[in-house]
Amino acid sequence: MYTVLPSPMLHTITGLRFQPIVDFHSGQAVAHEVLVEIRNVNLDVLFASLPTRCALQIFFWQANTLLKMQDKGQYWLNFPADKLLDPNAMELLLALRHQRRLTIEIQDPLTLTRMSRLEQRSVHNNLHRLKAAGWKIWLDDLTYELADDYARLALPFDGIKLDRSELNIPGRFDAFVHVVRDKIAGAVVVEGIETAQDLQRACASGAQFGQGFLWPESRIDAVVTA
């Protein structure tokens, strides 16, 4: 089982951070993306070089921690794309009693486009298996350059999170949102919302949800004990 985190650095996890995912219509948080907190570590640098096995272990540790909490919130957890081809990871996901409270947020959108056709078909089949088991599945960090590839792949995503850089390219942003909704998945989260102007632009694009530092995150203490 993916329960023990082998890296001494990962045992320095001190908490979980919760970033709100906000419904533009109601203005309310409908879910939270969950990230680990490690003091005095640049998490972007860490996760850029972290083996995907370790990222998978973090996923299952987070899942088990969250499902033991008393509240019944909705949580989105990062999942490495290449592990969609890992039979052991698939069996663990299918066996996890997620209570329909966890959403898989697939990282590394470029990884899926670089897979062989056979591997992409395997991913397609595995995503259908996960959805049949009640999982919600979103793709993270989609860029304009990858949109045509994902339209062709026609993977069964519940929604798409746009890379935070896209909001800062107003000349194509609205068109990008429409392409995603028409050809890839109907639901869209705009990342990188930091100002009232960002929020106004995102709401006008036709996307339904937003995420960013405009809305304060929260945290809890949580440590790896195994």
Score class of each variant (00 low, 15 high):
residue 141 D to K: 14
residue 198 D to Y: 02
residue 177 V to G: 06
residue 82 D to W: 09
residue 45 V to S: 14
residue 147 A to W: 02
residue 180 V to A: 04
residue 47 F to R: 01
residue 195 T to H: 05
residue 3 T to W: 14
residue 69 M to S: 13
residue 137 I to S: 11
residue 54 C to T: 05
residue 196 A to G: 10
residue 34 V to F: 04
residue 226 A to I: 09
residue 71 D to S: 15
residue 186 G to M: 03
residue 59 F to V: 04
residue 88 N to D: 15
residue 12 T to G: 05
residue 199 L to D: 02
residue 9 M to L: 15
residue 89 A to Y: 01
residue 74 Q to S: 11
residue 90 M to C: 03
residue 67 L to R: 10
residue 25 H to C: 06
residue 43 L to P: 05
residue 130 L to S: 09
residue 63 A to G: 09
residue 1 M to Y: 15
residue 164 R to P: 06
residue 189 V to D: 00
residue 39 R to A: 15
residue 198 D to M: 03
residue 11 H to I: 12
residue 114 R to D: 07
residue 60 F to N: 01
residue 135 W to F: 10
residue 217 E to I: 11
residue 219 R to F: 13
residue 90 M to K: 01
residue 201 R to E: 06
residue 96 L to I: 12
residue 50 L to D: 00
residue 60 F to W: 04
residue 209 F to C: 01
residue 224 V to L: 12
residue 202 A to Q: 02
residue 12 T to R: 13
residue 123 V to E: 03
residue 223 V to W: 03
residue 86 D to V: 07
residue 210 G to Q: 00
residue 151 A to D: 07
residue 108 D to M: 01
residue 217 E to M: 11
residue 125 N to S: 11
residue 134 G to K: 03
residue 204 A to F: 12
residue 59 F to P: 00
residue 48 A to S: 15
residue 83 K to Y: 07
residue 202 A to M: 03
residue 177 V to M: 06
residue 165 S to R: 11
residue 48 A to H: 14
residue 223 V to Y: 05
residue 175 A to M: 00
residue 221 D to E: 02
residue 98 H to Y: 03
residue 118 L to P: 00
residue 110 L to S: 08
residue 150 Y to F: 15
residue 190 V to L: 03
residue 183 K to F: 06
residue 36 V to N: 01
residue 112 L to W: 02
residue 70 Q to E: 11
residue 65 T to P: 00
residue 20 P to D: 09
residue 59 F to L: 05
